[in-house]
Write a protein that binds this DNA or RNA. Structure first.
Lengths: 171, 171
DNA sequence: TGTACATCAGTGAACGCGCGTTCACTGATGTAC
DNA sequence: TGTACATCAGTGAACGCGCGTTCACTGATGTAC
């Protein structure tokens, strides 16, 4: 039978809960400032169980980033920036694009991690160009850069008038 | 006499050394991953002396960001993006614009810190518009967003062909 | 179907280490007379 | 000018705490016969 038994099913669910909790907390406070204890509590488990699911905190971080990356894949290319620069997206970093939430952290990540991300970015951009309305690669890269930069700046200035202006600066 | 005596002069120099060392290390590894010991060693002092200069690590971080922010102020508005997106700037985060190096960290900083930064950003942007070649505020914001976003993405993808493409995506 | 044993997800306490911070002390610089 | 005392930048060891990780144990689930 390919059906998982009860134990395996439960373990898989626990793993999913940990990933979800970690994603939320990483988005809110960053991976460095998020403890295993905190993650596991949010997932409804205790700290010790963590290592039955992940080899180390480092491995968890990789996994979370990896799964969070293609979040905006399905948005049409010409709608992308507009969709990205929403107040909704700005105000909920816990469920947001990791390029904006963790961009500077990713820039400091080790080479292996950065290469993995680069590969995925390449795929996403190629897909966007292919399906987009005659968009050049250069335009696609500029769009993504603008979106990520404006989102970060809108978050930094959140609470001042400048923040909304950053969200509208693409128009 | 307004001349400082030898002690005060030396203390001022030590403070400057600490700030410089911290700026470099924060740029390279981020403030979270940088220890007081490390900073003080680089400054040629020992850990204990730190608290004669700064109330806490938190206060040092604020000071460093504050002083690093207007680094690009003097570049002419229409040259700004081009100047910003250089390989030199990408490859030396230790002496780079903190918006790119620490953008996501700043987005997570506390409200007080973010408001201080916002105020300075406002000033810088207003100055840019005033002196620039008929640039609208929206264009200035879009330029800054593009520059910061592309720099972060170029750093993440550094080591792959995509990185240079991000640096050239503004053309 | 029932019984005895094996497996394994999760518990919770403990360990070790790093890091921010404190503090008694030192020695050079500054001040009073 | 010299002497005695005060000040203070910096030292270096220690403290306390949080956090990543380990591990002996538990109890429910799965397996063999």
């Amino acid at each position: 039978m390919t059906a998982l038994n009860q134990r395996a099913k439960q373990k898989q669910q626990s793993r999913a809960k940990i990933l979800k909790a970690a994603g939320t907390l990483f988005g809110k406070n960053g991976p460095q400032a998020t403890g295993i204890d905190q993650i596991m509590k949010k997932a409804g488990l205790t700290a010790g169980a963590f290592y039955a699911h992940f080899k180390s905190k480092e491995h968890l971080i990789e996994e979370v980033l990896w799964s969070a990356l293609p979040a905006h894949q399905r948005v049409a290319a010409d709608e992308f920036v507009k969709h990205y620069l929403s107040t909704e997206h700005r105000d909920h970093p816990e469920s947001a694009c990791p390029l904006a939430t963790l961009g500077s952290d990713l820039a400091r990540a080790d080479r292996r991690m950065r290469l993995r991300i680069s590969k995925k970015l390449n795929e996403l951009i190629d897909a966007r160009i292919a399906t987009g309305t005659r968009m050049t690669k250069k335009e696609a890269l500029a769009n993504l850069s603008l979106a990520v930069g404006a989102m970060i700046l809108a978050r930094i200035t959140n609470g001042t008038p400048l923040s909304d202006e950053f969200l509208r600066c693409h128009e």
